[in-house]
């Protein structure tokens, strides 16, 4: 009992530490950028929202902070949080350490849906809806094909994921091929690489509802996701309605994936796009920190994912004179990590 309490306390403090890390990352992100904001001005501006402080800063700085940096920071956190939460949830529900939004085809389905909508000249909300719809279609296809696949279900899931993913990626390529070279193609291509540049408050309010709708049930059901990892028979005999639970978890995870991959308020201002690997890498790093129990794992993944995406976005907007698409940066981190995952010896997930 004492051992257990010590461990719980340790994990709780790890979560507190991660939370503190997130706050620090947010503060640093506020200061970084083309117009660096010194700490004194930053805290002055932030505190002036609560206490009456005589402004000693230029009004322009406040505008930069609240209208440009704040939405972008919030979006980075939300996207990072959602993609890694979806990854952790998919891993549990499919009993597969390699499951992630990109591997299951959720991302490529969303990309296809969005590209199709752009090609058809749909308005921004329709692009999002189309992305979510196709994302759900791919995940369901992958799931049902894997149920019918010969041999091990876990392997079948990955294989059917690869297959469906490549099918939809090919579909996206075809749309690019037939897209208008001057207007549609740049929009699609840029969209697919993923970027948070030009994020506005409107973008935040646009995605926050679907994200909350997906994240909240996952957070509340996180103990039960543990049980799903044991397999159908065991889960049911432990008192779980496993079909219903799996359905809820898959829909919620796909919703937050699609919301992360697909929001655009303005046709010519692509927002997120394909940001790969986060959903695979962050849950595993969190497993290293707090173990496999979703009670701690899910919150840790949420915060860790947010921190990661914030750091990556800072690199994206500060490293070079031009913005580096996030998909490129996350792949630089993710691909080596994937190689590490599949080559390391011993099974210590």
């Amino acid at each position: 009992m004492i051992e257990q309490k010590t461990k719980q306390r340790h994990y709780t403090w790890t979560l507190v530490g991660l939370g503190a890390g997130l706050i620090a990352a947010i503060i640093i992100s506020f200061m970084l950028g083309r117009y660096p904001v010194p700490p004194k001005e930053l805290f002055g501006i932030l505190l002036s929202k609560i206490f009456p402080i005589e402004p000693f800063w230029a009004e322009r700085v406040e505008t930069v902070l609240f209208n440009i940096r704040l939405p972008r920071i919030l979006l980075a956190c939300l996207v990072g949080c959602c993609l890694s939460t979806a990854g952790a949830a998919y891993q549990g529900v499919f009993q597969n350490p390699m499951a992630a939004p990109d591997i299951l085809g959720a991302s490529s389905g969303a990309a296809f849906g969005a590209a199709l909508a752009i090609k058809l000249g749909a308005a921004s909300r329709m692009i999002t809806a189309s992305a979510f719809l196709f994302s759900l279609i791919t995940v369901s296809l992958v799931y049902f094909i894997s149920l019918r696949a010969e041999g091990k279900r876990v392997i079948g899931l990955i294989l059917s994921g690869i297959m469906i993913s490549s099918l939809f990626t090919a579909g996206t390529s075809f749309i690019k091929l037939v897209a208008d070279q001057s207007s549609e193609l740049p929009a699609i291509t840029y969209w697919l690489m993923g970027s948070l540049s030009g994020a506005t408050k409107k973008d935040v309010t646009f995605v926050i509802l679907p994200m909350a709708l997906g994240l909240l049930p996952l957070f509340l059901l996180r103990w039960q996701i543990n049980i799903l990892t044991l397999g159908d028979d065991e889960a049911q005999t432990l008192g779980i309605n496993n079909n219903l639970l799996r359905l809820i978890v898959i829909i919620c995870s796909t919703l937050i994936t699609a919301a992360s991959v697909s929001d655009r308020c303005n046709y010519f201002r692509p927002v997120f796009g394909m940001i790969g690997w986060v959903g695979l890498v962050m849950p595993h790093l969190s497993r290293k920190l707090v173990g496999n129990n979703y009670i701690y794992l899910l919150p840790a993944t949420m915060i860790f994912g947010a921190i990661f995406m914030l750091v990556v976005d800072n690199v994206s907007r500060n490293l070079l004179a031009t913005e580096i698409p996030l998909g490129i940066l996350t792949a630089f981190v993710g691909a080596p990590f994937f190689i590490y995952l599949i080559t390391r010896r011993g099974d210590s997930f």
């Binding site: 543990n226 990892t229 496999n292 129990n293 997930f349």
Partner: peptide
Amino acid sequence: PSFNYTVFD
């Protein structure tokens, strides 16, 4: 199991 839970969990 797919994931290495502790005996207590």
